[in-house]
Structures are given as C-alpha cells and as structure tokens.
Amino acid sequence: MPHPSVAADAGVGYGCRELTQHAEFRAAAALYARVFAYTESEYALNANLLTALARNGGSAVGAFTEEGALIGFAYGFAGCDADGACFHYSQAAAVDPAQQGRGVGQALKLAQRAVALRWGQRSMRWTFDPLLSRNAHFNLSSLGAVGIAYERDYYARPDTDRLVVSWDLDGADRSVRRLPPCPAHARAGRLGGEP
C-alpha cells in the first residue's frame, strides 16, 4: 500500500506526494498525455497501471498546488539489469508547461527518491534525449546523476537515442543542487524519460 510522503519546500506554492486515489492516477495520466502531446493510444498511461506500479515496488508521485491542482507527475518501477544490479527506473516526469522552471521537476525526483528508498532501492536510473541541453544540465549537474550508457534507438524506433544515467540515492543529499526559480521566458521543454 502506498504511503503518502510530502517533499515540499516552504514558500514555493506546491508540494509533492505519492498518488493514492483513482482520481489522482487519472489526472496524472491526463497530464502526461497533455505535456507530451500524445494522442496515440500506444503512448497512453492508465490509472490501473499506475496503481499497480505504486503498490509493487514502483513510484507514482505528483506535485500539487496549495489548492490541490496537479502540476507535475513522475512514475517509475523496480528494475534489474543483465548483471543483476537492482534499481528504481524512472520512466518519465512531466510538468505542466505553465509551472516549469519553478523546481517542480527536481521536487518530483526527490519524492521519487523517497519512494525508491522506502522500497529498498539504492539507485535510480532513467534516460533522456542527450540533444536536449536543459535536460542534460538538470540530470547531470543539478541532480548529480552519472551517464552509464548511450543507447541507439532506445524505444526500438528511429530517432530515440538516449543517454542512460544512474543516480546514487544514498548520496543524493550531497549531490543535488537546489535550483532557483527560472524566469518565465526561459520555461520550456519536458523532463526526460519519455518515449
């Protein structure tokens, strides 16, 4: 059973916690589709999948305004590589475009970290498009993740090359650099992991 956790900085106007209600899982799936402009059913998330992930070693966390509106969402699952290394795999993070540049993505990653640590996972992996410099800066400089592989056509189709990163969750407190709010004109883009 998921245990709600709060990961909010005072004064930012939002807080992060685990999703627990069907309506929250549905809202997260809708936000994901809207942020990534997905209209094809093959890219859809659904509430049942997110609920199952959250109950079985995965994560489904949201960033909510003080009024209760969902402005960001991240989800992941327990993973294991061919060498037997276990980790939490963060599949995607999506932040409402109007809320980007406010540290929401970083807060979501920190909330995912808390969930992964509770499940006993000591590292987190995810991928991102290495051509998106803002994502590279966020993942490598701000969070302190380390590139471990470059994968061509990661999603088994052309033009989906990705850099795979690993984040030491035990050392994350030392490696995360808190991001200052970004000016409104610089807010753009999506966080990594998306197909």
Score class of each variant (00 low, 15 high):
Ala44Lys: 07
Ala47Met: 04
Asn48Asp: 13
Leu49Asn: 12
Leu50Ile: 10
Thr51Asp: 14
Thr51Glu: 15
Ala54Ser: 14
Ala54Tyr: 02
Ala54Ile: 05
Arg55Lys: 14
Arg55Glu: 15
Gly57Phe: 04
Gly57Thr: 11
Ser59Pro: 08
Ser59Asn: 10
Ala60Gly: 10
Val61Lys: 04
Gly62Val: 04
Phe64Asn: 10
Thr65Cys: 05
Glu66His: 10
Glu66Ala: 12
Glu66Ile: 10
Gly68Tyr: 06
Gly68Asp: 06
Ile71Gln: 10
Gly72Asp: 03
Gly72Arg: 01
Ala74Met: 02
Ala74Val: 02
Ala74Arg: 00
Tyr75Ser: 08
Tyr75Ile: 03
Tyr75Lys: 00
Gly76Thr: 01
Gly76Phe: 03
Gly76Trp: 06
Ala78Lys: 13
Gly79Pro: 11
Cys80Phe: 09
Cys80Gln: 14
Gly84Pro: 08
Phe87Trp: 06
Tyr89Cys: 04
Ser90Glu: 03
Gln91Arg: 02
Gln91Gly: 01
Ala92Pro: 00
Ala94Glu: 02
Val95Asn: 01
Val95Phe: 01
Asp96His: 12
Ala98Glu: 13
Ala98Asp: 12
Ala98Phe: 02
Ala98Ser: 10
Gln99Cys: 15
Gln99Pro: 02
Gln100Met: 14
Val104Trp: 01
Gln106Asp: 03
Lys109Gly: 00
Leu110Asp: 07
Leu110Ser: 05
Gln112Thr: 06
Arg113Val: 08
Arg113Thr: 14
Leu117Met: 11
Leu117Ser: 06
Trp119Gln: 08
Trp119Gly: 07
Met124Asp: 00
Arg125Phe: 01
Arg125Ile: 02
Arg125Thr: 08
Thr127Cys: 11
Pro130His: 01
Leu131Gln: 14
Leu131His: 13
Ser133Arg: 14
Arg134Phe: 09
Ala136Arg: 15
His137Val: 15
His137Gly: 11
Asn139Ser: 07
Leu140Arg: 12
Ala145Arg: 05
Ala145Ser: 14
Gly147Cys: 13
Ile148Gln: 05
Tyr150Glu: 14
Arg152Phe: 08
Arg152Asp: 09
Arg152Pro: 09
Tyr155Lys: 09
Tyr155Glu: 05
Ala156Phe: 09
Arg157Leu: 11
Arg157Cys: 11
Pro158Cys: 05
Asp159Phe: 07
Thr160Ala: 07
Asp161Gln: 04
Leu163Ala: 09
Leu163Lys: 02
Val164Asn: 00
Trp167Thr: 10
Trp167Arg: 02
Asp168Met: 01
Asp168Arg: 01
Leu169Phe: 02
Leu169Ile: 05
Asp170Met: 13
Gly171Asp: 14
Ala172Glu: 07
Ala172Asp: 11
Arg174Pro: 01
Arg174Gln: 14
Ser175Asn: 09
Ser175Cys: 07
Ser175Thr: 15
Arg177Thr: 15
Leu179Ser: 09
